[in-house]
Design a protein around this nucleic acid. Structure first.
Lengths: 329, 329
DNA sequence: ACTCTCTCTGCAAAGCTTTGCATAGGAGAA
DNA sequence: TTCTCCTATGCAAAGCTTTGCAGAGAGAGT
């Protein structure tokens, strides 16, 4: 069926080690021999067996990438960037979906541990302790969460939240609802902390609603509670939830942004498509994916603890407007 | 670092073959021995080395999954379903993004060929000939395209297009524009054929605009051309394009659906979120993912040529309305 | 008591490649 | 010519597991 290094060696009249070197250490082989070997290999359709290679070198040239939910448009850009970056360096990416389940997450890391040279953990839901344990099994890089130990890639959510509050207060809003994300999400905690601080310093009244699943449905379901508070603005855990909130508000007859303004976080693709366009804190998804791969490959998941924080940016669209009865000052 | 089968064998006082069997053929090992081995393995944190296993068995328990564009919301549900289905059977899925590039596509298949037990080719753009060649390297299942040879999973786009035309003609539309997809897309051709046939039999005037990239931007760009035809309805290659068309139309001051109706294909998540909600032909994405994995695993990509066609369904939302000046009959 | 059958375990080869070490041969220097 | 030093190649071990074959021991049947 598929030819092995022996076939090539025989056909080229050299020892298998020469064939091996022609591929992985060309400078050790004379030019003519190398050309001949490569030509024969080409003709025979020879491709080194990755399993044998991995067995002896201990490197698979694969990277694992765990995400909570592939269907969340937040992840694809990150994955694309990571995969592209990995590909440039001769690595493939194994993507797995954990379904927001910490148990599945841990199982998957363990299952992948020996098949990959490292794993990117995106927005992991498992405990810090579990991450520490797993780190001994396989090099890890964590995205979107603070953990002691492995290199970490973060997005500056606090700055984004502050910008959102500045935007809202400039529009005259004095009562804001924060619709949080799921328990165990670092981002959700970070957003909450930043929102609390920003609200206090701006003298804004903040109501926290949560925890919630990070889905559009959960957002829609939260809309009633939002209205009950009488607030004039909402900050949501992410765009999916924000879109759900808008849906729920509109459903309940509350005009957005006339009666109430909505701000999301992430800037996923659909946020541009919906109407009103969603004002949101844009996160550097592609940059995070690339950075995570860099960290994993360059430091091998070890080395000094690196903590990389990437900037965020408020994108103002149509879902925010002056607070009702409070014309823009 | 990580323990091998020898460590476990030594610690349990048995031969390595017994350890191996305790894992992969438990019925061949006495109950007490097995328990002891398993307990020792657990204590030592032993996990079989997949590379060594793959080397000797020739099976990796990995599946490849190639998609044209991960960021297209069409794919995530398919991938999720495929990965879930694979996981249940002890397989992992390696996802790769081809960036709509036939060359990258072919390279990726070749690169993955020895690392996986089979590859799912979703909406491939490469030539039939290339698929035939690659089929000799690795078991293949093709999704969303007709190819002789490998098992194929299709969605009944023709039926969906017919349903869309029935819906439009019932609303009084007599002039329809078809905004096609990229060259090399089987689906685009299929849609065009079905649309041409449906238009003829319904006495509807059909204008074909394309080829176009399968993106929102392309849709928006096509809007001007659509308006120029004077048609009262549009059928787009997919929802992304349809959403772009709506955007472009609204931008140009044409009311949707008042002046012109728009129908998409796929029913991706954002289609529910936008306003007006997109009328679209829903395709069975998850079912296709599962079916493709089934086919790959059960038939090993060989066996009788299977061609599985899954049903589609027209979902009517708010982007379609009676043709202007032609009240519903 | 003997043989036959089974069940369980051990032995060793095989799978494909990489890589440290050894060697052969040639070129250059003395 | 002889010795030294390189370069290019070969040799063989190692990496970890699976699996066909064989053997040991126990239990059963006669």
């Amino acid at each position: 069926m598929s030819s092995t290094i022996r076939d090539v060696a025989a056909a080229a009249g050299v020892h298998i080690s020469t064939v091996s070197r022609a591929f992985s250490a060309p400078h050790l082989v004379s030019r003519e021999t190398r050309d001949r070997v490569l030509e024969v290999a080409e003709r025979l359709g020879y491709r080194p067996n990755p399993a044998a290679r991995a067995l002896i070198t201990g490197r698979t040239h694969n990277l694992g990438l765990l995400v909570a939910d592939l269907a969340n448009p937040f992840f694809p850009p990150l994955i694309k960037a990571a995969a592209g970056c990995a590909r440039e360096r001769g690595y493939h990416v194994v993507v797995a979906d954990t379904d927001e389940d910490p148990v599945v997450e841990e199982e998957l890391v363990l299952a992948l541990a020996r098949q990959v040279d490292g794993i990117l953990l995106c927005s992991p839901r498992m405990t810090n302790e579990a991450i520490g344990r797993l780190r001994e099994e396989v090099p890890l890089v964590v995205v979107n969460r603070v953990v002691a130990g492995p290199p970490v890639v973060l997005m500056d959510l606090a700055a984004g939240v502050r910008a959102a509050f500045e935007h809202l207060t400039a529009l005259g809003h004095r009562a804001v609802v924060l619709v949080t994300g799921p328990r165990g999400s670092w981002a959700s905690g970070e957003i909450r902390r930043a929102a609390t601080a920003a609200a206090r310093s701006a003298g804004v009244d903040l109501t926290v609603l949560g925890p919630n699943p990070p889905t559009q449905e959960a957002g829609a379901a939260a809309a009633a509670g939002v209205l009950r508070t009488g607030a004039t603005a909402v900050l949501a855990y992410n765009d999916l939830v924000a879109i759900g909130v808008i849906e729920g508000l509109v459903e309940a007859g509350a005009d957005v942004p006339g009666r109430i303004s909505v701000v999301g976080i992430d800037d996923i693709a659909p946020s541009r498509m919906i109407s009103p366009g969603l004002t949101t804190v844009a996160t550097p998804k592609a940059a995070a994916g690339r950075a995570a791969v860099d960290l994993l490959l360059e430091r091998g998941g070890d080395g000094v603890t690196a903590r990389l924080t990437l900037g965020t940016e408020l994108v103002v669209r149509e879902s925010t407007a002056p607070a009702p009865g409070r014309p823009l000052t």
